[in-house]
Amino acid sequence: MNEEVKSAVRVLEMLELLARSTRPVSLKEVALELGYPKSSAHQLLATLVSRGYAMREDGERYRLNEACRSGPGWTGGGDAQLIALAQPVMRQLRDQCGETVLLGVRMRDGRLKTIAKCVGSMPVRYDSELAGGLPSYCTALGRVLLAYWDPVLTDRHLARERIVRLTDHTTVDRVRIRSLIQDARREGFAISDQEMDADGCGVAAPIYDAGGTVVAALDIAVVAQRFASRKQSLLDLVVAHARTISARNGFRPEAHGEAGA
């Protein structure tokens, strides 16, 4: 007896189609290739987009979320939904500044996981693979995420974390690291200047959920030779776009006092 569920089969067939496609595909192409009514194909694609498994491009074209292709999106439904909310804003930010834009979340152990990126358009640009288990103490993303975590858990993380000098610029003094994390909480952003990667700099700001909890951080990553002259403008941009993503995520600053200030 065939125990396949028709709706589940259709979802899997659509995911398989998106996974093997080398370019974004149109609604018409999906319906024709899979033999679905156009209305049904549209509903299924809309569901995949809302859950973060697919991304909608301009011109009614669809592609698989790259986070799903490379790993993190399949295992974290919350991450996938956050990526779906954030990526249009990330692309807008990338197009505005020309630099690479990253989205990161804190892992249970306090380390950093990058879950989405939009690679910059500059001829010389910063890039990195999406990955988990990255150090938080020396990255702008990580410092923001530690700054808005439970202070007790942040202290425990820093006490047990192995602090390594990754570059000549890495801050390794634990007192100074704690001070930088406190600065990130007070100022609403963090900076890493060639501490994680030689010649790579980053500025990051928090992303809130509807309850006022910081659930992610947005980062602009830039090569060092452009950083000094662009630092303030990049800070302004990353803070503004992080607020936009927070608003899309249901956050209302006025409901949480100083949380969104």
Rank of each mutant, 00 (worst) to 15 (best):
G188D: 14
A159V: 07
T171C: 12
L141G: 03
R178D: 11
L153K: 13
L130D: 09
T170F: 04
V164G: 11
R162V: 10
A159D: 11
T139M: 11
L158C: 11
L153H: 08
L166I: 14
D197W: 15
A184M: 09
T154C: 13
R176W: 12
R186N: 02
R156H: 10
D193A: 12
T154H: 09
L146P: 02
A140G: 00
G188H: 15
S179L: 04
T154I: 10
A131T: 08
D193P: 07
V152Y: 07
L166S: 14
E187G: 02
P151T: 12
T170K: 05
Y137S: 09
R186E: 01
E195F: 02
S179C: 07
C138A: 12
W149G: 06
I163R: 06
D150Q: 07
I191F: 08
A131L: 10
P135F: 07
A198L: 03
R178S: 09
R185L: 11
A147C: 00
G133R: 03
A131K: 14
H157N: 04
D155T: 02
E195H: 06
D168W: 15
Y137A: 08
A140Y: 01
L153Q: 08
G132E: 07
I181L: 03
R186V: 00
L158F: 14
R162Y: 08
V175L: 10
A140C: 01
V175Y: 07
L145T: 04
E195C: 05
W149P: 03
Q194T: 01
T170P: 06
R162I: 06
D150M: 02
Y148V: 02
V164R: 15
A198I: 02
Q194N: 02
R162L: 13
G142C: 05
V172K: 14
Q194E: 08
C138R: 07
G142D: 03
V152M: 09
H157C: 03
D193L: 10
D193R: 13
T139Y: 08
V164F: 15
R162Q: 10
V164L: 15
A190H: 09
L145N: 05
R156K: 09
P135L: 04
I191E: 13
T170G: 07
C138F: 08
L146A: 01
G142H: 06
W149V: 04
I177H: 00
Y137D: 12
M196F: 15
L180V: 10
E187W: 01
R143W: 03
T139G: 04
V164S: 13
Y148E: 02
A184G: 13
V152E: 12
A140D: 00
D168G: 15
A159K: 11
L134N: 12
R185N: 03
G133S: 01
P135D: 08
V175I: 12
S136C: 08
L134A: 09
L130N: 10
I181P: 01
D173K: 12
I163N: 01
P151G: 09
V172A: 15
E161T: 14
A147Y: 00
V152R: 10
G200I: 15
A198S: 04
V175P: 03
A184W: 08
L146Q: 06
Q194W: 02
